Amino acid sequence: MSENNVSYLRQEFLAPRPAPLSDRSAIGWARKNLFASPLDAVTTIIFGVIIVWFAVSAFDWLFISAVWTGEGRAVCATTVQGGIQPDGWSGACWAYVGDWFTQFMVGSYPRDQLWRPILIAVLFVGLLAPMLVPSAPRKGLNALLLLVVLPILAYVLLLGGWFGLPHVETSQWGGLMVTLLLSFVGIVVSLPFGIVLALGRRSDMPIVRSASIGFIELVRGVPLITVLFMASVLLPLFLTPGNNIDKFVRALVGVSIFASAYMAEVIRGGLQAIPKGQYEGADSLGLTYWQKMILIIMPQAIKLVIPGIVNTFIGMFKDTSLVSIINMYDLLGIVKASFGDASWLTPVTPLTGLIFAGFVFWLFCFGMSRYSAFVERRLDRGHKR
Rank of each mutant, 00 (worst) to 15 (best):
A15R: 07
P16L: 07
P16A: 13
R17T: 14
R17S: 12
R17Y: 01
P18G: 08
A19V: 15
A19E: 14
P20R: 02
L21Y: 09
L21C: 01
L21R: 07
S22Y: 03
S22P: 02
D23M: 14
D23W: 09
R24H: 11
R24M: 14
S25N: 07
A26Q: 09
G28E: 04
G28A: 04
G28Q: 02
A30V: 10
K32H: 06
F35W: 12
F35R: 01
F35P: 06
F35E: 13
P38N: 00
L39R: 05
D40E: 15
A41S: 15
A41M: 11
F47W: 13
G48Q: 06
I50F: 11
I51C: 12
V52Q: 01
V52L: 13
W53P: 03
W53H: 14
F54S: 00
V56F: 13
S57A: 15
F59A: 12
F59C: 09
F59Q: 06
F63W: 07
F63N: 12
I64M: 10
I64W: 13
W68K: 10
T69V: 10
E71L: 03
E71N: 08
E71K: 08
E71I: 05
G72S: 02
A74T: 05
V75Y: 04
C76N: 01
C76A: 02
A77P: 00
A77L: 10
T79I: 09
V80Q: 12
Q81L: 11
G82H: 07
G82Q: 08
I84D: 10
Q85K: 08
Q85V: 12
P86Y: 03
P86T: 01
D87I: 00
G88V: 00
G88E: 01
S90A: 12
S90Y: 00
G91Y: 00
G91E: 09
G91W: 00
A92K: 02
C93R: 00
Y96L: 08
Y96P: 01
V97A: 09
G98S: 06
G98I: 09
F101V: 03
T102Y: 01
F104P: 02
M105L: 14
G107K: 08
S108C: 06
S108H: 13
S108K: 14
P110A: 11
Q113A: 11
L114F: 07
W115C: 02
R116D: 01
R116F: 04
P117C: 04
P117E: 07
I118P: 05
L119T: 14
L119A: 15
A121Q: 04
A121M: 12
A121L: 14
L123M: 09
L123W: 10
V125M: 07
V125N: 04
V125Q: 03
V125W: 08
G126F: 03
L127Y: 04
P130T: 15
L132F: 15
L132T: 15
L132M: 15
L132D: 13
V133G: 09
P134M: 14
A136E: 07
R138A: 15
K139F: 01
K139Y: 01
K139T: 05
G140F: 08
L141F: 13
L141A: 14
N142V: 05
A143D: 11
A143W: 07
L144C: 10
L144R: 08
L144T: 11
L145T: 04
L145A: 10
